[in-house]
Amino acid sequence: MLTHEEITSLDEILSSHDYDSASVIAIMQDIQKTYRYLPQEALTYIAGKLKMSEAKIYGVATFYENFSLEPKGRYVIKVCDGTACHVRKSIPILEEFRNILGLSETKHNSDDMLFTLETVSCLGACGLAPVCTVNDKVHAAMTPEKARELIKELREEAADEN
């Protein structure tokens, strides 16, 4: 069930796009920026407001890889495991992130929801391999040691902002 504040926020997003169903992707991008994923209740709400079927809304949400129907942490770390990164030892980096954050192949979010860890096939930065991104910022020539330092910096940043 959506709260009054959530409905107000969704209405502001919809209004900024003139309640135009042709802007559904941009609307969903704005919702994801707000929540870090697309909550089911929000999708149901915008379907009604845009006079679109929920099936159509879910079709858009599941078609595009950048949309997530699952909650994500404040920091989304993507570790590249494409060929260039893999041969330059991206797996030990991935394993270090998992160890530090208490994650596994099936558990992608840290308990505090500060971090989400994903693997991707290619980040398009092969010359900088091995690479990872944190909220789309590239970190080149990664090592397990650099992974530990990065997590430490991100935790300090989050603590400073709270």
Rank of each mutant, 00 (worst) to 15 (best):
N109I: 05
T143K: 02
D81Q: 14
E70F: 09
I13Y: 02
V134K: 05
R36L: 12
S68L: 10
T133P: 05
N135V: 03
P130C: 09
Y58H: 11
L114P: 07
E70K: 12
L150C: 04
S68N: 13
C85Q: 03
V60I: 15
L94P: 03
C126W: 00
R88I: 03
D160C: 10
H17L: 08
C126L: 09
V24K: 11
F63M: 11
M113V: 10
V138Y: 00
L38G: 01
P92Y: 05
E95V: 07
L50E: 07
Q40F: 14
E12G: 10
K137Q: 09
D18R: 14
K33Q: 14
D136L: 07
N109K: 08
A55L: 12
S104N: 10
Q40G: 09
P92Q: 08
E149P: 07
Y19F: 15
H17F: 15
A147W: 03
L14T: 01
T8C: 11
H86S: 15
G82Y: 00
I46P: 04
I77P: 01
T143E: 02
T133F: 08
C126T: 03
K33E: 14
T106K: 13
D112Q: 11
A84M: 06
P39M: 08
D136R: 11
F115T: 00
E157N: 13
L103T: 04
N135D: 11
L114K: 15
S104D: 10
A61C: 11
M113W: 13
E145Q: 14
D30M: 07
